[in-house]
């Protein structure tokens, strides 16, 4: 005690005051760290505007909005799964599967189906169901989420390929090009829709008991379980919502390309997880949120955009993305002051 009492500036504090100050310090520190991704984003934007030719233009701003759409929807879904400390590796598979089947359900060149909007709704329902199954397998059979979702992603990719038998369908449904090429004030419809889905995610996070349970699970699942909350059901819902968002992303992909194949999903998992981690989510769970995910997505998309604008050697681009994710995780570990690493 004598030692702590003699610490500079803390000599006159009682234990209670000292504790309160410590908490206040930590809170301030946390607040500051939470601002880091935002600061990074702002600096990136300023630097890119100054030094990257073609970045600070209306066309490019619209491009960025366009390119944010799909990762933002995926991030909206997977954020909850990450907060509970799980992971969903099936999002690429679900996305590819939904992109494939939706093109077979609406008017297309491959078969005689013409279900229109109903076909789109059925696709999202099917995708959501896949997430539900992933969730059930995860909680009821107690298979780690990364394993069950990895397997599920593979299964569903196979179904996706089977659905079109190697010959992707080209869409003839007029609504698809109308959505992909339509815009208000130059901003594409799809960007507005993605923003809408993101706002739904924000609403869920702010105003529902589901979201509070999600954070509680990420923090300490045991405590929540002892209060009588149906933790399993909350987890299943998180996976179903994640897959629902992945299906919508698949739908967007198919709309943008006007054709459907499983490859549409590929490469999105890495971008989304990078975005989440860069935004400040912790893969150990308990941390993260919609706004953080948005910031992360924008940062990652801007980096990708700038690398193309700068004409950076493609060999280096892959390495840059890897370095970014490692740096971001390193930062988040320092932030969380983890006691041990598994």
């Amino acid at each position: 005690m004598a030692n702590s009492a003699s610490l500079p500036g803390r000599g006159d504090l009682t234990i209670a005051e000292e504790f309160a100050q410590k908490i206040a310090d930590e809170r301030r520190h946390n607040q500051l760290m939470q601002m880091v991704p935002g600061i990074i984003l702002a600096s990136f934007a300023v630097l890119a505007s100054l030094f990257v030719g073609g970045f600070f233009t209306v066309t490019n701003a619209i491009n960025i909005l366009n390119q944010i759409s799909i990762p933002l929807i995926l991030a909206t879904g997977i954020t909850n799964v990450i907060i509970i400390g799980g992971i969903d590796l099936s999002i690429e598979g679900v996305m590819g599967f939904c992109a494939s089947i939706v093109t077979l359900l609406v008017l297309n060149k491959k078969n005689s189906m013409d279900l229109g909007v109903l076909g789109m709704a059925l696709t999202v329902a099917a995708g959501t169901f896949i997430g539900f199954v992933t969730g059930v397998l995860h909680v009821k059979m107690r298979i780690p989420s990364f394993m069950v979702s990895f397997g599920m992603g593979s299964v569903i990719t196979g179904f996706g390929i089977m659905s079109y038998g190697g010959k992707p369908a080209t869409v003839e449904y007029a609504l698809f090009p109308a959505i992909s090429q339509g815009s208000i004030l130059g901003i594409p419809y799809l960007s507005f829709m993605a923003l809408g889905i993101f706002l739904v995610g924000c609403f869920i996070q702010k105003y529902t008991a589901f979201a509070r349970a999600i954070y509680a699970i990420g923090d300490n699942e045991g405590v929540l379980r002892s209060t009588g909350v149906n933790v399993d059901w909350v987890k299943i819902k998180a996976f179903a919502w994640c897959a629902c968002c992945a299906s919508l992303a698949g739908l967007f992909g198919a709309i943008r390309l006007n054709r459907g194949e499983v490859i549409i999903g590929q490469g999105n998992l890495f971008t989304t997880i990078t975005a989440l981690v860069v935004g400040g989510a912790s893969l150990a769970g308990g941390k993260g949120g919609m706004l953080e995910s948005l910031v992360g997505v924008v940062i990652v998309v801007i980096i990708q955009n700038c690398m193309i604008l700068l004409g950076i050697n493609p060999y280096i681009q892959e390495a840059v993305k890897g370095v970014i994710i490692i740096l971001a995780v390193a930062l988040s570990v320092t932030r969380g002051k983890k006691d041990f690493v598994k």
């Binding site: 066309t59 490019n60 491009n63 943008r256 004409g311 493609p314």
Partner: peptide, 24 residues
């Protein structure tokens, strides 16, 4: 020849890349 970008045979990446090119 202005630029070469790797898109891993993926149409979605090619779409995004082309959008960015059109701005530049």
């Amino acid at each position: 020849f202005l630029d070469l970008q790797v898109c891993d045979w993926n149409p979605q990446r090619a779409l995004n890349t082309t959008e960015t090119w059109l701005a530049k």
